[in-house]
């Protein structure tokens, strides 16, 4: 069978589908001062998956949407905020301000961060000492 670390080199999704892969990628991103990108990516996925049916679901969603907005998008010097297009940021800000909470409200921002990782940090990770030493 193919060892997991070889699968990690196939695509970003293969890497993010494996706990050890995520751990190593996070260590690398932290070194590069962009660990927040990965946390944001997972936070967006988690937000989309939140159940509406659970009690207080809507209140929890609103709280979470605000927390994600505050931590990753509001601070314009943050690594995530700097990678997201101004129009996308305005859209999210507007959703939060109008209390218009939609499961897909972070999708565009997540895509922008994912593209950034696919084109930039992920290829760098595959060439990094941290990955090569692991293999």
């Amino acid at each position: 069978p193919t060892p997991p670390y070889l699968k990690w080199a196939e695509s970003l999704h293969s890497l993010l589908d494996d706990q050890d892969g995520i751990h190593l990628f996070r260590t690398f991103l932290k070194q590069e001062d962009c660990g927040d990108m990965l946390d944001f990516w997972f936070a967006c996925s988690g937000f989309r998956k939140l159940e509406t049916s659970e009690s207080q679901g809507e209140e929890k969603k609103l709280k979470l949407a605000k927390a994600i907005y505050k931590k990753y998008i509001l601070d314009s010097n943050g690594i995530v905020s700097r990678q997201i297009k101004p129009a996308t940021k305005s859209f999210i800000k507007d959703c939060v301000a109008r209390l218009h909470i939609d499961p897909a409200m972070f999708d565009q921002a997540q895509t922008e961060i994912q593209t950034m990782m696919e084109e930039n940090t992920y290829p760098l990770f595959l060439k990094s000492d941290i990955y090569l030493e692991y293999t």
């Binding site: 995520i22 988690g46 937000f47 929890k60 927390a67």
Partner: peptide, 20 residues
């Protein structure tokens, strides 16, 4: 503030793949 962080952490963990 703590509970906001907890909520965020819980959300991030929920999106991670489960241990195989």
């Amino acid at each position: 503030i703590d509970s906001e962080d907890d909520l965020l952490q819980e959300c991030i963990s929920s999106a991670m793949p489960k241990k195989k």
